[in-house]
């Protein structure tokens, strides 16, 4: 191998190394900015506008499989039934009166790969709701039904009782936007977003696990591993 050739191999390897370093750096920058599109990255780079919370809200991608329902709060009712000793049907005001309002900051993870850090939710804990309706001994799971009649999801009773499992009606101190599930959606921070049904109007306690909308296509029921 002559001198010229040896040098050119070195140059090739240097180019590879520099390329990888450059890509790593730019990938890390994108991660830091938390952008979900070129526009988001540029907007974050240039400072953007509005409070961080609202920029994060814009970064949510809407993955609904049914049209966003037009909910009139006065007509809205939440029904909790199935294998419970004390089934209830609450108006939105009754729901807020019956259960303690909590605020929770948690990350949101989508099965697609994107996520939003530190989302501030307002709502009520599923745990408290479960205590009020008193599930029968045969109840092992809860199923959430969306207003559109298409989307359903389920959790085990233990998952529903977890500390951070929430029925949320607010985000960043405001009402949930309609595409985000107004007036009520389920939030389970440690699971992918598809486990949290939006526009929840019915919660049924069952003795078996009901396969949710995406789970019938192939996503895992545990909501933690993708497929």
């Amino acid at each position: 191998m002559n001198e010229q050739e040896r040098m050119t191999r070195r140059r090739f390897l240097k180019a590879c190394g520099l390329g990888l370093a450059g890509l790593s750096l730019s990938g890390y920058m994108t991660y830091l900015f938390g952008g979900t599109s070129v526009k988001d990255v540029l907007k974050s780079t240039l400072g953007g506008t509005g409070a961080d919370g609202f920029r994060a809200l814009e970064n949510f991608r809407i993955n609904s499989v049914e049209p966003t329902p037009n909910v009139q709060l006065a007509d809205y009712r939440l029904t909790v039934d199935g294998l419970v000793a004390n089934p209830v049907t609450w108006s939105f005001a009754e729901l807020k009166h019956a259960l303690t309002e909590v605020e929770q900051v948690s990350d949101f993870h989508c099965v697609e790969g994107w996520g939003i850090k530190n989302v501030r939710w307002t709502g009520v804990k599923m745990r408290e709701l479960i205590q009020q309706v008193r599930p029968m001994q045969t109840a092992t799971h809860v199923t959430f039904y969306s207003l559109g009649g298409v989307y359903t999801e389920s959790l085990s009773l233990a998952e529903a009782m977890e500390e951070e499992t929430l029925l949320a009606y607010g985000i960043y101190g405001k009402d949930l936007p309609a595409p985000q599930g107004y007036p009520l959606r389920a939030i389970i921070p440690r699971m992918f977003g598809y486990k949290g049904a939006k526009w929840v109007y019915r919660i049924e306690f069952t003795d078996h696990q009901h396969l949710g909308y995406w789970e019938r296509y192939g996503y895992n029921v545990d909501g933690v591993t993708a497929r």
Binding site: S26, G27, T30, G34, G35, D107, H109, G113, G115
Partner: peptide
Amino acid sequence: LQTREFLYNWHKLLFY
């Protein structure tokens, strides 16, 4: 999940 989201952002950047 954090690492996954980091890699997802990188995947998008490489896509561009």
